[in-house]
């Protein structure tokens, strides 16, 4: 078995673990972590595709490699937004279920 195939199969397994975690995750934070695991698997798969496309003096196809960099940064942005939502929710719940202190509540 070539190294690329090995990493490709590992990436497939990482994706499966991520999907499982997304489905059964207890709480939003667990799901966010699972999303990152799944993302990691997809990125590695892209890396395998890049490695298989090595040529023209490059160790790997630079296009997918560059795209993975973009993807990692986007995944981080998503995690940051999700983490902030989780924290705000915990903060509001800690106030004891009372509707938020803002006066504009009109329901």
């Amino acid at each position: 078995m070539s190294a690329e195939t090995l990493f490709g199969l590992a990436a497939a397994a990482l994706c499966a673990i991520g999907i499982y975690g997304l489905m059964v995750g207890r709480g939003a934070l667990a799901r966010l972590i699972a999303f990152n695991l799944l993302g990691g698997g997809v990125f590695v798969l892209f890396g395998v595709v890049a490695r298989r496309g090595a040529g023209a003096g490059f160790g790997g196809d630079p296009v997918p490699q560059a795209l993975v960099i973009t993807g990692i940064v986007v995944a981080f942005s998503a995690t940051a937004l999700g983490a902030a939502l989780v924290e705000r929710l915990a903060q509001l719940r800690a106030k004891g279920g009372a509707p938020s202190e803002e006066p504009e509540a009109d329901t």
Binding site: R51, G59, Q65, T79
Partner: peptide
């Protein structure tokens, strides 16, 4: 990523994917 000959990605993964993402998750 280093083994996949993608050092740029390896740097990004360690700095952003693991490092900064991990910090945000720890905070949460």
């Amino acid at each position: 990523w280093v083994r996949l000959a993608a050092v740029d990605v390896a740097l990004t993964e360690v700095a952003v994917g693991s490092g900064v993402t991990g910090l945000v998750l720890l905070r949460a």
